[in-house]
Amino acid sequence: MPRMTFILQDGSCREVDAPAGLSVLEIAQRNGVELEGACGGSCACSTCHVIVGEAWFAKLEPASEEEEDMLDLAFGLALTSRLGCQIRMREALDGLVVTLPAATRNMMVDQ
């Protein structure tokens, strides 16, 4: 089974099983990693924003226009930013490393 590593906000690492077919958001939630996913993984917010390790970024499928639009709302955007709900694990991504940003912006919460 593929594995992946989350670099948490405090700098610590959590390596977890990453079943093929699940999104990075689903994997995080199954393993108690604090990745919000306010829209339920429907690519309608930016709360599952992650920063993909540079060595892995080119191995991902390109971001859709919809994902790019949502990333524009993300806090702490980086060149290798992606939405966790849009990255589907597969064998070729075994060892994937993603970093959680310092904060998230939840535009779906009533203020």
Rank of each mutant, 00 (worst) to 15 (best):
L35N: 00
A55M: 07
E67H: 00
G41L: 09
A28V: 07
A102R: 03
G37I: 10
L71T: 01
G40Q: 14
L96A: 12
G84D: 03
M89K: 06
A63L: 11
S64G: 09
L100W: 04
A102K: 11
A38L: 11
M70L: 07
L35P: 01
C48Q: 02
C48T: 06
M89H: 13
G95T: 03
D72Y: 04
I51C: 03
G76D: 00
E36C: 08
P101N: 01
G84R: 00
T99R: 14
G32N: 03
E68S: 11
E66P: 10
C45F: 01
L60K: 04
S64A: 08
E68H: 06
D69R: 00
V52T: 12
K59I: 13
V97R: 13
A78T: 02
T99H: 15
E91D: 12
A55E: 13
R88T: 15
A44S: 08
Q86E: 04
E91K: 15
W56A: 11
C43T: 10
T99Y: 15
G95I: 05
D72C: 12
E34K: 06
L77R: 10
L83S: 05
A58I: 10
C85S: 02
A44I: 09
G95Y: 02
A55T: 10
V50G: 12
T80M: 11
D72V: 01
H49G: 01
G76M: 02
E68P: 04
Q86R: 09
V97N: 13
K59Q: 14
L79G: 06
S46Q: 02
C48S: 01
G95F: 01
E54K: 14
G40N: 10
E67I: 00
L60Q: 04
A74N: 12
E66Q: 14
L71H: 01
P101V: 02
M70T: 03
A55L: 08
A38T: 11
V97K: 14
A92Q: 15
T80W: 09
V50E: 07
S42H: 13
G40E: 10
L79N: 08
G32Q: 08
